[in-house]
Design a protein around this nucleic acid. Structure first.
Lengths: 237, 237
DNA sequence: ACTCAAATTTGATCTGAGTCAATCGGCTTT
DNA sequence: AAAGCCGATTGACTCAGATCAAATTTGAGT
């Protein structure tokens, strides 16, 4: 990993050319509000492996992911890690009650976020219930995903976990980039293992097994889904 | 399980004598609003084992738990079950995006809920941002708990799971009934197993092991924490 | 108290996934 | 192009927790 540097763009960027304008929290704002809103956020770049925020850190900002992928994770005191999710463009991060982040987030590859200072953002929400409603929607969606993931972690076999992950990840990329049987996997095997509650060896073996069965092909930086139906059958169980 | 019957109280119950008035969603309402609010909800009783709502069912109501304990769970097609949480008085259930419940809920022992029809409740929220903010708070808290539970399911050993569960459950009861080393466990061993991603045998054996170590005592309908510090040590790992 | 059914505990055995240990392959650096 | 490094793969072996199979306890109904 090269020593990457956090970069804050000097200015000149506006919501107009923002890729996630229609998708993210911003989708609840009209043109006039958006103009006001864009003064609150600033684009910030993070290099690969860079930490955007850490668990237990006091929340000073909210983040809207614009580009790239992030891993969201929690650590146990002895170093065991559980990845609670991957963030993609359009995802909104930083909501919490205690005033502290309840997970850590770092960049997988280059990442651009739209960063909002907590206080002005909170003030902006204050008299815009539709923005609050939008944030509530996002929280409820995440809650639903979290529950699905609990089922996976608590009750599924390694094969089912991996198959479910591949389909779910592809599904999320479809929404961003359109349908394709080529599924880029920017995260490492260790990341996948920590997301699925497995070890890196088990993930690797399962990939190899799927490839030998002719169900997927392991390619550089991802996999190719040769037989999506079979993968779905494995995931459904 | 005797054939229990859902009972709707004829009327005459008001928020004034509601045990969770200060704790639940209602805590965001002033006296005048509460008066209006109480016409929206009706108290409904469920017998032991009774299902309050099922996953994939269209959401017609929201629920505020007033008395008793509920298990919230998801089933895989082959019958494997993951309990995603237990609901206690003050908990608010039914929020979702798709218009369908994303888990099932049933009563563990007798339960009383305050049931709100979806449409009037949504209308009531409409111009009361502080109620929406309260609901958002509850969602964010649950999200944080869900992530903690993911760590437990994905990365903790059976011993750690059981110890963590006992402490967490006690913690929730403390908030309702005050501190005590006697921890009632109204749910079955199977429920605990399905909550922790274990089998009933492993839960039973772990309880027995803890008892033999003199850390807990298994009593009728629950356990007694003889050595909370040791349990905490097991949970921390 | 007595009976039957269900829940829990206990024991014996099995196995899926973890652990430990090489090895491989692709990049980067020199 | 050789060396070194890091992530990924593969193999051999182990073990925590699952599975299978009885007891044993508990509880509701008679």
């Amino acid at each position: 990993m090269k020593p990457s540097v956090v970069t804050i763009e000097p200015n000149g960027h506006f919501c107009d050319d923002c890729a996630v304008r229609g998708a993210a929290v911003c989708s609840s704002l009209d043109a006039a509000e958006l103009r006001e809103f864009e003064h609150l956020g600033r684009r910030v770049h993070f290099g690969s492996g860079e930490t955007v925020f850490s668990e237990e850190e006091i929340t000073t900002s909210f983040y809207n992911v614009l580009e790239g992928v992030m891993r969201l994770y929690k650590l146990l005191p002895d170093g065991r890690r559980q990845i609670v999710g991957f963030a993609l463009p359009g995802d909104f991060l930083g909501m919490n009650l205690s005033g502290r982040h309840n997970f850590s987030a770092d960049a997988i590859g280059a990442v651009t976020v739209c960063q909002f200072a907590k206080a002005p953002f909170s003030r902006f929400i204050e008299d815009r219930p539709q923005l609050l409603r939008r944030i509530n929607e996002l929280a409820i969606r995440e809650l639903s995903q979290a529950r699905d993931h609990m089922v996976l972690l608590g009750r599924r076999s390694a094969d089912e976990k991996v198959a479910t992950f591949l389909l779910g990840w592809r599904e999320r990329l479809v929404a961003l980039k359109g349908l394709s049987n080529t599924v880029p996997l920017p995260m490492s095997r260790q990341d996948i293992a920590d997301y699925l509650g497995l070890t890196i060896e088990t993930v690797s073996r399962t990939f190899t097994k799927l490839e030998r069965q002719g169900v997927i092909e392991i390619i550089h930086g991802g996999i190719s889904l040769l037989d999506p139906a079979r993968v779905e059958a494995m995931a459904a169980a």
